[in-house]
């Protein structure tokens, strides 16, 4: 129990750091941050009075407010889930835009990551188990696939499977001509899956190699452990040894390292969503940055961080469940 409490405390602290970063970053350059932003935006076009008001609210336009007060005010806003108003899609509140995009990202990226993890770890286990055979030679080739930039792979897939051979759609989450907006119908769901295949494929192809390699290395190490010899001497079935003795131990680092790998997946999917014009958090973030929509951008940063922390915590629970040493060690 203590283990879980420690983790939660850590995540809360991290979130606080992220929020504080959000507050500090715009204020790092000298001068009134609000004015700098407004200047930046006016370079791109006209700035409406509403936009100015939003900026000032976000960055504390009143210069007689102390930094500490502004900080507390900002913390307050965030805790009450007030992330400001978007500038590019004025007057939609940031939270509304984010909640529209969130399900797309979680659905696509989440599902694809889970598939990639399971396939990678499973294949890695089998390859590690059958070490010294021809399957060993597959391993170096996975490094080539892994070094491909996510978005380049996406471009390639689009080129091959959507432009040259129109098997899949070029982009978007769903066919905007057919459906006015998201609706609960089988046709819509089917269309979503259709549109989501190439993006999902990109994620899976790019990230499966890492898990495969890690698991394979761990398996090779684990296979020489004493308890494996004991299991064999006990005359246990190969499947049991593979599953309960070898894999269960070898998978531990993969699970604990999931959080870090997730960071790469998140990074890659932001760019990938841009390539596919997929209506998720990533594309929204790019739109925000390009449109100097700082409220939206910072809000997205917080939400993405929160999602990653949540995923990490889920993995912590899984790890604690599998490895009894964590439970008693704390």
């Amino acid at each position: 129990m203590k283990y879980y409490t420690r983790r939660i405390v850590f995540y809360v602290l991290t979130l606080w750091v992220a929020i504080s970063l959000n507050f500090l970053l715009p204020r790092l350059s000298p001068g009134d941050p609000a004015q700098i932003m407004i200047d930046k935006m006016s370079r791109g076009g006209e700035v409406t009075p509403e936009q100015i008001a939003t900026i000032q609210r976000l960055f504390g336009g009143d210069s007689d407010q102390s930094l500490w007060d502004a900080y507390v005010q900002y913390l307050n806003q965030v805790i009450h889930w007030d992330l400001g108003t978007s500038v590019t899609k004025f007057p939609a509140p940031v939270t509304e835009l984010i909640s529209q995009a969130l399900p797309w990202t979680i659905g696509l990226v989440g599902l694809a990551t889970v598939i990639s993890f399971l396939v990678g770890v499973g294949a890695g286990a089998i390859i590690g188990w059958r070490r010294g055979t021809w399957v060993d030679h597959i391993v170096p080739s996975t490094t080539l696939i892994q070094s491909l930039p996510y978005f380049w792979l996406a471009l390639l897939l689009i080129y091959l499977l959507a432009v040259q051979n129109p098997v899949f759609p070029v982009g978007n989450g769903y066919d905007i001509r057919e459906f006015g907006g998201p609706e609960w119908s089988w046709a819509f769901v089917g269309d979503v899956i259709y549109h989501g295949t190439l993006p999902a494929l990109t994620i899976v192809i790019s990230s499966v190699g890492g898990w495969l390699l890690g698991m394979r290395n761990m398996m090779v190490s684990t296979m020489s452990e004493d308890y494996i010899v004991t299991a064999e001497a006990k005359g246990l079935r190969k499947s049991r040894i593979l599953m309960t003795y070898a894999t269960r131990n070898a998978a531990l680092p993969s699970i604990s390292g999931f959080g870090i790998t997730l960071a790469f997946v998140v990074a890659g999917s932001i760019v990938m969503e841009q390539v596919f014009s997929y209506p998720g958090l990533g594309k929204l973030m790019i739109t925000a940055v390009r449109g100097n929509d700082y409220a939206l951008m910072q809000g997205l940063f917080l939400v993405i961080t929160l999602t990653v922390l949540a995923a990490n915590f889920i993995m912590d629970i899984v790890y604690g469940f599998i490895d009894p040493r964590t439970r008693s060690n704390a």
Partner: peptide, 21 residues
Amino acid sequence: FRWDKISMVFQGAMNSLNPVI
């Protein structure tokens, strides 16, 4: 045949038992 006819006790049970079950 294994364990039924011949069983073994290994050196240093430190690591001879599966740590996760």
